[in-house]
Design a binder for these strands. Structure first.
Length: 293
DNA sequence: TTGCGCGAATTCGGCTCCAA
DNA sequence: TTGGAGCCGAATTCGCGCAA
């Protein structure tokens, strides 16, 4: 995952410059997606298995055949909860992809409120409802168009996204932002984003939990409790996972010595780095490099 | 009831050293 | 480059009290 300098907000280039839309398939087995956020809206459709997504500190189980919608800027992480492979599809798109030059009623009544954050998509919609069934149908249409890339596939994707918007609007499922969150949840999200920013900025240096606690004006002991309660991980566990994630990119993309990479991502002890690498990636750094060569 | 701070106890991360 | 042993200090947990 690429992130903007100084933030855990993803900035990966999705799709082509003229098509700010990207779809990918994942086959996961015992996988954890660490906490982050991005500006794009993301639709997750689970084809096989089941996962737990934590969105803005609230865990949601997504089972086979179900989908969820992650709004722009929402903090999210995920982990698989099934034995064997879990297959899911993610559709990411910038809301500007659907913008119109003209302020017609579509733009004024639906697009602008979504872009401003006044409207938000509901995270989950019951797949047994009329709305849920129609959205699933459009998701499948989008995946088919994206995979086949026939002449006109871009129009098909836009049309399906508009269709999803219209179905959600028709069923009255858009959430009004001011009632979406209590101030307590907003406060938690603000705190977590500040902590994640700090980690991303400083992961290459030594980070003490006391530093993180200071960053959000909390007592260190209370901060540990707060962080674990809202992310499911201790601060140290989260930092280590992030560092290993950075190390995997360097191992893949560079001819640097593994010991140099270890120090570059913030580990001060090479032996400990290998131990943690094995814990998260299920292989040693050297085995990981060989698997890409 | 909830959010938070504090002290004490316990756990475990991370270090050094060393061998293969 | 990898990984094991042993140790120390930081991290984490627990229980409690206080305030809003």
């Amino acid at each position: 995952m690429e992130t903007e300098k100084g933030t855990l907000r993803e900035t990966v280039d999705r799709g082509e410059a003229l098509i700010p839309f990207y779809a990918y398939n994942h086959v996961w087995s015992n996988f954890t997606l660490y906490l982050h956020w991005h500006n794009e809206v993301e639709i997750i459709y689970v084809e096989k298995g089941s996962l737990v997504y934590t969105i803005d500190t609230i865990p949601i189980k997504v089972s086979e055949g179900e989908f969820i919608i992650i709004n722009s800027g929402q903090l999210h992480s995920a982990h698989t909860i099934c034995n064997g492979d879990c297959v899911h599809h993610a559709l990411l798109f910038d809301l500007n992809f659907l913008n119109s030059k003209h302020d017609d009623s579509c733009q004024l009544n639906y697009l602008n409120p979504l872009l401003s954050g006044y409207y938000r998509f509901p995270t989950s919609i019951d797949i047994n409802t009329n709305c849920g069934k129609k959205v699933i149908g459009e998701i499948k249409e989008i995946l088919e168009s994206y995979n086949e890339k026939y002449f006109g596939w871009e129009i098909a994707i836009k049309a399906s996204l508009y269709k999803i918007f219209s179905v959600v609007a028709r069923e009255g499922d858009f959430l009004i932002n001011e009632s979406t969150y209590t101030s307590a949840i907003s406060y938690k999200i603000t705190i977590l984003k500040r902590v994640l920013n700090y980690i991303q900025k400083n992961y290459a240096d030594k980070i003490y939990t006391e530093d993180l606690a200071k960053e959000v004006s909390m007592n260190p002991q209370y901060f540990c409790r707060f962080f674990k309660a809202n992310t499911g991980k201790t601060p140290v566990d989260f930092i280590n996972q992030y560092r290993i994630e950075q190390a995997t990119k360097l191992i893949k993309n560079a001819d640097k010595k593994i010991s140099d990479i270890c120090y570059e991502v913030g580990f001060e002890n090479f032996s400990y780095f290998i131990k943690k690498f094995k814990e998260y990636e299920k292989c040693t750094p050297n085995q990981y490099r060989k698997s890409f060569n």
